[in-house]
């Protein structure tokens, strides 16, 4: 039994080594040939919204628990973009941090939810809220209609990490 578990453990490790190699592929095969600079996307993100792109950069962040996103550094200082993948479809390892990656995916945007902040009414004054606030049971709440800038991300379909 002990020997059998050793054999199976070796097989498991061997399969990992087999599937590893110098550069690791994730998800679908990359189909695009030309890369788009991350700085170009971030410069005019609206024009790339919904479009498929091939980007490259250094992996500077990895989702710790599920491996469901990575952050890629841009070609210009301080620039980065998040690549989100469907949970389980691609699992990025923590070891990817600091490595070069080429990612194919679709640019998309999200508008972060603004949580309304509520403060209690002044005693006996139900209509003491300011113009930007709404009077609710919880008190004066900021409407959440504040202008919020979109966040642009890439929905990762396939990736190669060196």
């Amino acid at each position: 039994m002990k020997q059998l578990s050793y054999v199976i453990s070796i097989l498991l490790v061997a399969s990992m080594v087999l599937f590893a190699g110098d550069s690791q592929k994730y998800g679908k095969e990359i189909t695009l040939k030309e890369t788009t600079k991350i700085s170009t996307i971030l410069e005019k993100p609206d024009s790339y919204d919904g479009k498929k792109v091939l980007v490259e950069g250094t992996v500077i962040g990895v989702c710790e628990t599920r491996g469901c996103w990575i952050e890629l550094s841009g070609d210009q200082p301080y620039e980065k973009i998040k690549v989100k993948v469907n949970d389980g479809e691609i699992v990025f390892p923590m070891e990817a941090k600091g490595k070069k990656a080429v990612v194919e995916g679709e640019v998309y945007s999200i508008v972060p939810e603004v949580q309304s902040e509520c403060g209690s009414h002044k005693e006996g004054e139900k209509s003491s809220c300011s113009e930007e606030e709404k009077s609710t049971e919880e008190g004066c709440c900021s409407s959440g209609d504040k202008k919020v800038s979109k966040i642009y991300m890439i929905k990762g379909l396939g990736a190669v990490i060196e």
Partner: peptide, 20 residues
């Protein structure tokens, strides 16, 4: 050091072989 990323004028991320 494998690679690095200047996150802002004050912040930098350094990716070493075993530590970040």
């Amino acid at each position: 050091l494998n690679s690095l990323f200047l996150a802002s004028e004050d912040e930098i991320d350094l990716f070493f072989q075993k530590v970040t």
